[in-house]
């Protein structure tokens, strides 16, 4: 009954055409702009992009923060996930719900809160000056640190959920077996938990890393125009300098990184399904 090819194509075509026309073609054209100089294919734009110190700084900063946020999310994520799986199943559900909750709130709202917390008259500074650790308020906002904190808050839930899922699928006896054989807790983590949950780690890590690389709102609010990341740089280059070549280069970088991460995820998923 499901053999009719014409039927199947008729059902799929609207969505496929839509995706192609609205999305795939325009993006491809945008990417090709960065690869053309005059009428010919050329890497000149890429060369000039990376030769500009500001661009290079932004690129490296984006990568650096991506890695730092991912590592921090992994460490905190494991700690939180291990605590969560040891809860009763009802509490576990509630806890997961609480952690997923922030994902439903607009990133603008979530990031904006840090202004209140990290600003000159914000909580952190108030606390620090009242304890007497500093005399003048610290400038935490509009810095890489602020962006780091904002991104971490934004993406940590994804890592925690991913790890909780991986831990739930881990054979529970493995830990007991290791303990009986004499392993201490650090060894248990390193030799048992980590290898058995590494897929969850990679999934969470990919989500956090790509999310951090392609973030706009958090760098915009917490970094301003002083501390740029790739997406805020892109916005600036287009609106201020009409520089579509740079925009195209940045777009290519972002897409390549996002795409590679996704490919990795898919490969993992199929490897898992085969088991």
């Amino acid at each position: 009954m499901f053999q009719n090819r014409a039927e199947s194509l008729a059902l799929a075509l609207p969505a496929a055409l839509f995706a192609a026309v609205v999305f795939i073609v325009p993006v491809l054209i945008l990417l090709s702009e960065g690869l053309r100089l005059g009428g010919d294919w050329s890497l000149a734009h890429y060369v000039s992009f990376f030769s500009t110190p500001l661009n290079l700084t932004v690129f490296i900063r984006t990568l650096k923060l991506g890695v730092l946020v991912t590592v921090a999310a992994a460490v905190i994520g494991y700690a939180a996930a291990l605590c969560i799986v040891n809860l009763s199943s009802r509490n576990r559900g509630r806890m997961v719900g609480l952690i997923v909750l922030p994902l439903m709130i607009s990133p603008v709202a979530r990031t904006y809160a840090w202004i209140v917390i990290l600003g000159r008259t914000g909580i952190v500074n108030q606390a620090l000056t009242s304890i007497g650790l500093t005399d003048a308020p610290l400038r935490i906002l509009f810095s890489e640190t602020a962006i780091f904190i904002g991104l971490l808050q934004l993406f940590l839930p994804l890592m925690i959920i991913s790890l909780v899922s991986a831990l739930e699928n881990m054979p529970r006896d493995a830990i007991s077996a290791a303990r009986v054989l004499g392993a201490n807790w650090l060894q248990v983590f390193w030799k048992v938990i980590l290898p058995l949950t590494k897929e969850g780690l990679v999934i969470g890590g990919t989500l956090v890393f790509t999310g951090s690389l392609t973030a706009y709102i958090t760098p915009a609010i917490l970094g301003g125009s002083k501390v740029l990341m790739l997406e805020t740089l892109l916005y600036q280059r287009v609106t201020i300098a009409n520089d579509f070549a740079s925009a195209s280069v940045i777009a290519m970088i972002l897409i390549v990184m996002s795409f590679s991460a996704n490919l990795l995820l898919k490969r993992l998923a199929t490897a898992r399904a085969k088991r």
Binding site: A15, A16, A19, A20, F23, I24, P26, V27, I29, L30, T214, Y216, E231, L234, Y235, V238, A247, A251, L254, I255, S258, F259, N262
Partner: peptide, 16 residues
């Protein structure tokens, strides 16, 4: 093709 928009950062789609 229909899942691709998730992979491409939104800002690029808007710009394109």
């Amino acid at each position: 093709a229909v899942s691709a928009p998730i992979i491409v950062p939104g800002i690029i789609v808007g710009l394109a």
